[in-house]
Amino acid sequence: MQQRVGGLRATSPGWASFDIRPVVDDRVTWGRISHGTVRGVATVEWARTGDQWDVGLQVPAGATARLVLPGGHSRQFGGGSHTFLTDLYRSR
């Protein structure tokens, strides 16, 4: 569930960096997952309506997260709380 639906996956030891790749499946339109790491809690909440994604992230201090959406759309985030809205063609 954490990796498939929530999309959280460590990419380096101790969760110093991790990817967020939410599931792309018409049967699943939202997800929310938290994971306790040695750096703090990593959280992702996402909702999808058509091609639009609304994503909220909590990245632990000292870590980096890479949000990856369909079509190769990606963005890097440092520690803190972040929100991201995209329609896969442009971000706001």
Rank of each mutant, 00 (worst) to 15 (best):
S34M: 08
G50A: 08
S74L: 01
D26P: 13
A10M: 01
G36C: 04
G79N: 02
T37L: 02
P60A: 08
T37Y: 02
R39T: 06
D87V: 08
F84L: 09
D51W: 06
G40D: 05
D26W: 07
A61Q: 15
T11P: 05
S12C: 04
G71M: 10
A10V: 01
T11F: 07
V5H: 14
Q52F: 05
H82I: 03
G14C: 08
S74I: 05
V38G: 11
G78Y: 04
A42R: 01
A10Q: 08
V24G: 10
L8D: 01
L88V: 08
A16D: 12
V41F: 00
D26R: 12
A65L: 03
W30V: 05
V41P: 03
M1T: 15
G14F: 03
G7Y: 10
G78V: 05
T86A: 08
F77T: 07
V59H: 00
V59S: 02
G79P: 00
G80N: 06
R39P: 07
L8P: 10
V5P: 11
G50Y: 10
R4I: 15
G72F: 03
G14T: 00
G79K: 00
V38T: 10
T64Y: 06
W30K: 14
F77W: 00
R32Q: 09
V55N: 04
A42I: 03
R66E: 02
M1L: 15
G62W: 00
L57H: 04
A10S: 13
G72A: 13
I20R: 01
R48D: 06
A47D: 06
R48K: 10
V55H: 08
V24Q: 13
G40I: 00
V68C: 03
P13T: 11
S91R: 10
R48C: 07
V41N: 04
F77C: 02
T86Q: 09
R21A: 13
W30I: 06
R4E: 15
P13R: 13
